[in-house]
């Protein structure tokens, strides 16, 4: 307890916690409002397959667990935002304020870990909402999730080899006024898009019928909103990895900074970053909508037989090119 711990500023910790709790609370409020609107203006349709309570593993009341899983998924998704750098710096008064919540040298791994934890939310969700063939649904979900998460992990590794860093700030600054990573790593970019589109979808199809996320109530709304939070934040992550993050294309950021100062550059970078994120999120939404049409088993087959080998070949090829 004495010398071998890093001292952490208490104010800093509290600030981060307040920020995360505030955002989580806002999404929760939105979920409640959606649920209220559902109750007021919509009638629950039959055949959504909800309200089946299993007493085998969860005990008598899995409702609490489902809610806990929804909150867990939401918090974990929002935690992704803590390591994404949103801009270079902004000058307030006489000091430069950096625009990320936590700069950790393992930002990429952190995001992957948080993404991976979403599997528990999915398991709890399927366990409580799927009525027949529950084991099949659980295993299909697990298979699909692992295929996507594994492919995404394998797709990021060549990028980390190129950047020689797992710090997102470093990866962005390497692309600054240089060639974006997408031109080196197009297969990785596509795999990330596909994986995010599948993972951020709160409801996979099951027996030709939507399961959770299609019903009503605040938990379902929360699952849907979590899907959108994840979609947006992963879109930001992909932008930072492959599209240069907040870097402004075609002009030199350094020259702009010298000419106009930090704050003007911050605004310009914000516009650039927002534009890129909107583009990526639009592509993601479109991909997600298209993938919804396919059966889960087809997606699993593609994931294991096509995407993961492609990611492996990409990894091996990049390694050979880097060494040779």
């Amino acid at each position: 307890m004495k010398g071998n711990y890093v001292t952490i500023d208490l104010a800093l910790v509290i600030e981060k916690l307040v920020l995360i709790i505030a955002v989580t609370f806002l999404v929760w409020v939105a979920a409640r409002m959606i649920a209220m609107a559902d109750r007021k203006w919509l009638h629950p349709s039959p055949g959504t397959g909800v309200k089946d309570i299993s007493e085998s593993l969860f005990g008598a009341t899995p409702r609490l667990l489902v809610k806990a899983a929804a909150v867990l998924m939401l918090v974990v998704s929002i935690m992704i935002s803590t390591v994404i750098p949103w801009g270079e710096a902004v000058r307030i008064g006489s000091r430069n304020v950096s625009l990320f919540i936590a700069r950790v040298d393992i930002g990429v791994l952190l995001i992957l870990a948080f993404l991976w934890l979403g599997i528990y939310g999915g398991i709890a969700q399927r366990w409580s909402y799927v009525k027949n063939d529950r084991i099949g649904a659980l295993f299909r979900f697990g298979s699909l999730f692992i295929a996507c998460a594994l492919a995404m992990g394998l797709a990021i590794v060549p990028l980390l080899m190129l950047a020689a860093s797992t710090d997102l700030q470093n990866i962005i600054s390497l692309q600054k006024d240089a060639v974006w990573n997408i031109f080196y790593q197009l297969p990785g970019f596509l795999i990330m898009l596909l994986g995010t589109a599948v993972l951020s979808k709160p409801s996979f199809t099951n027996d030709g019928r939507r399961i959770a996320g299609a019903g009503f109530g605040s938990v379902n709304a929360m699952y849907n909103l979590t899907g959108y939070v994840l979609l947006f934040l992963m879109g930001t992550f992909i932008t930072a990895l492959y599209l240069g993050g907040y870097e402004i294309p075609f002009v030199s950021d350094l020259a702009l900074r010298r000419r106009f100062g930090v704050n003007v550059l911050f605004i310009l970078q914000g516009i650039s970053f927002s534009f890129k994120i909107i583009m990526v999120v639009a592509i993601l939404l479109w991909t997600r909508r298209v993938l919804e049409r396919y059966d889960e088993s087809i997606l699993i087959r593609w994931g294991w037989k096509l995407i993961i080998p492609a990611a492996l070949i990409n990894l091996a090829g990049t390694a050979v090119v880097l060494v040779a």
Binding site: A113, L117, I119, Y120, G142
Partner: peptide, 10 residues
Amino acid sequence: ILVVAGALGV
């Protein structure tokens, strides 16, 4: 978190 909580727990 990634290996023990993610993979092993699952």
